[in-house]
C-alpha cells in the first residue's frame, strides 16, 4: 500500500502494523464487510417477499396452493440452516443449468448425469466457462442471496401468517360491511394493518439473519469470518512477509464488536419503526402513546 512497506521485515511497532493492516488480504477483509452488508440489504426484502408469498399461499382458498404454502413454511423451518446450506446451493445451481441445458441444447446426445458427473453443454453453463471471475463471483453471491431468502422467507412466512390472523376481526368485518370484496379487504385493510403485529417477529428474524451471515462461506461467498480465520490463523502467515502467531483471538474479538454494534444499531432503528407503526393502533402500545400525547 505505502511505499515504505516494501520491506516489512525491517519495520517495527506502529509502522509494521500500519503496513500489515493494509495488505491486499486485509483489503479483502474490509471489502467482505461490504459484501455482508450488501447481502443483508438484498436478502431482507427478498425474504420478506418470499415470506409474503408463502403466507398468502398458506391462507389461500385454493387447496393445492394452500398445501404448497404450508409445506414450504413447515419444512424449511424444520431444517437447521447449516444442513440446508450444505447441499442446497449445488442443487440450485444444477437445477438452473439443467433447465438451460434443455432449452439451449435440445439435440445434445449425452445424458446430463454421467456417473457422478453433472455435464451440461457449454452454452448452458452458468456462468459461461469463459466469463471473467467477477461474473462467477456475482453469480455465486446471487445464489447465496436466493438460498438465504428461501430459508428466511419460510420464517418470515410464519410470522406474517400469524400477523394476518392477529389483525382484529372487527376491522375486517367493518371493511366487509362497507361492501368491499375479499381482495379489497386484503389489500386495503389486512395488509396495511398487519405490520404492527408482524414487526416484533420480523425484527427478531432480522437479528437471527445478521447472525447467520458467518455461514456464508458454506455458500461459497468469502465473508468476514472466512477472512478473519485466514488472516488470524498461524498457518499461512509463516509463508508471507508478515509472520505472526495465532491471532484469531484478536480478529474474532473485532468481529464480536462488529456484530454487537450492528445489533445495537438495528435495535434502535427497529424501536423507532415500531413507535411509528404503533401510532393510532388499537394495541396496548398505541394506547400508551395516545395517553402520553394527551
Amino acid at each position: 500500500m505505502f511505499g515504505n512497506c516494501a520491506d516489512p521485515g525491517a519495520l517495527d511497532g506502529l509502522a509494521w502494523l500500519g503496513c500489515y493492516l493494509t495488505t491486499g488480504k486485509h483489503m479483502s477483509l474490509y471489502g467482505s464487510l461490504g459484501t455482508v452488508l450488501l447481502l443483508l440489504a438484498i436478502t431482507a426484502p427478498t425474504a420478506l417477499l418470499f415470506g409474503f408469498g408463502g403466507a398468502t399461499a398458506a391462507r389461500s382458498h385454493v387447496a393445492p396452493l394452500r398445501w404448497f404454502g404450508k409445506t414450504y413454511i413447515a419444512i424449511v423451518r424444520g431444517v437447521p440452516d447449516i444442513a440446508f446450506f450444505l447441499f442446497f446451493v449445488i442443487a440450485l445451481d444444477q437445477g438452473f443449468e439443467y433447465i438451460r441445458h434443455h432449452v439451449l441444447c435440445p439435440e445434445w446426445p449425452d445424458t446430463v448425469r454421467q456417473g457422478n458427473d453433472f455435464v451440461v453443454c457449454a452454452q448452458a453453463k452458468l456462468p459461461l466457462g469463459n466469463s471473467p471471475q467477477w461474473v462467477h463471483e456475482t453469480y455465486g453471491f446471487l445464489l447465496a442471496v436466493l438460498t438465504f431468502a428461501i430459508v428466511f422467507g419460510a420464517f418470515a412466512g410464519n410470522v406474517l401468517f400469524g400477523a394476518m390472523r392477529a389483525v382484529p376481526r372487527a376491522q375486517l368485518e367493518t371493511a366487509e360491511a362497507y361492501g368491499m370484496t375479499r381482495g379489497q379487504v386484503t389489500r386495503r385493510v389486512l395488509i396495511p394493518q398487519m405490520w404492527v403485529y408482524a414487526l416484533p417477529g420480523l425484527s427478531n428474524l432480522w437479528m437471527v439473519l445478521i447472525k447467520a451471515t458467518p455461514l456464508l462461506f458454506l455458500l461459497g461467498v468469502e465473508d468476514i469470518v472466512y477472512w478473519s480465520r485466514e488472516l488470524g490463523g498461524a498457518k499461512q502467515p509463516q509463508f508471507t512477509d508478515y509472520p505472526h502467531p495465532d491471532w484469531r483471538m484478536w480478529y474474532f474479538g473485532a468481529l464480536l464488536v462488529f456484530y454487537l454494534c450492528f445489533t445495537k444499531v438495528s435495535e434502535i432503528v427497529m424501536d423507532r419503526l415500531m413507535a411509528r407503526l404503533t401510532l393510532g393502533q388499537a394495541t396496548a402500545g398505541g394506547e400508551a402513546q395516545r395517553r402520553a400525547g394527551a
Partner: peptide
C-alpha cells in the same frame, strides 16, 4: 488456498505456493 506450502493466499490475497 489454505494449505501451505502447497497452496495459500499471499499478502495480496492471491493464490500462491
Amino acid at each position: 488456498g489454505a494449505y501451505p506450502p502447497y497452496n495459500f493466499l499471499n499478502d495480496a490475497g492471491e493464490v500462491d505456493g
